[in-house]
């Protein structure tokens, strides 16, 4: 057993890559939930984004277009959920689960011609001498553009929610749709926008899997990442910074347990492979035990149906 063989630099660098898909998807879902909508279809939207992005990148040879198509595909699928829950007032939990089922099927259908193909690669940004600095060179300046985009979006989401009028409206809708409606806010429109944004972000996260992290297309390739993204939103107590923390914690433990195995640490493997889930639960318990007096930040009208009666 040789712990010194585990390089902190590379560990941090690879946990950032490992966490990016769930970070993107969880940020999207955060906005959706802040608007008072619970969309459990993240897995379905992610995998739809994964194939839309992959197919477009392969056909055009341009990964950036691929990501754009992934966002579009995820958003379109999410609008199925949006129309059902906002206009037909269907139950959000069930509709979200149905969306996952549908998305998994749809993505396999779309992807039938794309098995065993290599996508065009998304290069790390070349930041010249900055990338050669010790530690920070690799960790801070050694990534592809999507990693930076995801970090930028964490800040942007925070800014949007806390510092803009639109963000305020969105939160108002999520806290009390009746009050928001009485104030003249278009509850349904706000929620549909939030849902589409969530879909686009889940699509981006899926495309990051199929275009960068893996990169290939295979059916069912998200393998539960969407569910983890949902868990991360709860973990974050509905705060963008918490989402970042949760995604990096989860990604970090996942990567670390594999590194520990590779370094030959004599710990039972089955416990190591459960560790990302157990540690996430443990951290949440500690956080919620400390803050048990105050509200955990769940939007008050999360998951409730809204129907304007006047």
């Amino acid at each position: 057993m040789d712990l010194s063989a585990i390089s902190a630099t590379l560990l941090v660098a690879s946990l950032m890559v490992a966490a990016t898909p769930i970070l993107l998807a969880a940020l999207g879902e955060l906005i959706v939930e802040k608007a008072g909508v619970l969309n459990l279809g993240v897995e379905g939207m992610m995998i739809t984004g994964a194939i839309c992005g992959f197919a477009t990148a392969v056909e055009t040879g341009n990964p950036v277009l691929g990501f754009a198509a992934a966002a579009l595909g995820g958003a379109m699928l999410s609008l199925v959920f949006g129309v059902l829950t906002q206009i037909f007032l269907s139950n959000q939990v069930a509709t979200g689960l149905a969306l996952t089922l549908f998305g998994l099927g749809l993505s396999s259908l779309l992807g039938q011609g794309y098995v065993g193909i290599k996508p065009p690669s998304t290069a790390r940004l070349d930041l010249g001498p900055l990338s050669d600095l010790p530690f920070v060179g690799r960790v801070v300046f050694g990534h592809d553009w999507v990693v930076y985009l995801s970090l930028f979006l964490v800040v942007a989401t925070w800014y949007f929610l806390r510092r803009t009028r639109a963000g305020l409206k969105l939160r108002a809708v999520g806290e009390s749709h009746h009050a928001a409606h009485a104030l003249g806010l278009k509850v349904r429109a706000v929620r549909l926008c939030a849902i589409a944004f969530g879909g686009a972000m889940a699509g981006l996260g899926g495309a990051y899997l199929s275009l960068v992290r893996v990169p290939q297309w295979t059916e069912g390739m998200t393998a539960g990442a969407g569910w983890i993204a949902l868990a991360i939103v709860v973990f974050s107590s509905w705060r963008p910074g918490g989402v970042l923390l949760g995604a990096y914690l989860f990604g970090g433990v996942t990567v670390l347990q594999l590194n520990l195995q590779a370094a030959g640490v004599a710990l039972p493997v089955e416990y190591l492979s459960m560790s990302p889930y157990l540690i996430t639960i443990a951290v949440l318990v500690v956080m919620s035990a400390r803050g048990s007096k105050r509200s955990l930040g769940a939007p008050a009208d999360l998951g409730k149906q809204f129907h304007a009666t006047h």
Partner: peptide
């Protein structure tokens, strides 16, 4: 028929079941 199409079909059935429920309450 690919298993994926069946899955999508099930998804559709659920969507429609959930959507038309609106007629019961509204």
């Amino acid at each position: 028929i690919p298993a994926a199409a069946i899955q999508a079909f099930q998804g559709m059935l659920l969507f429609f079941l959930l959507a038309v429920d609106v007629l019961t309450n509204y």
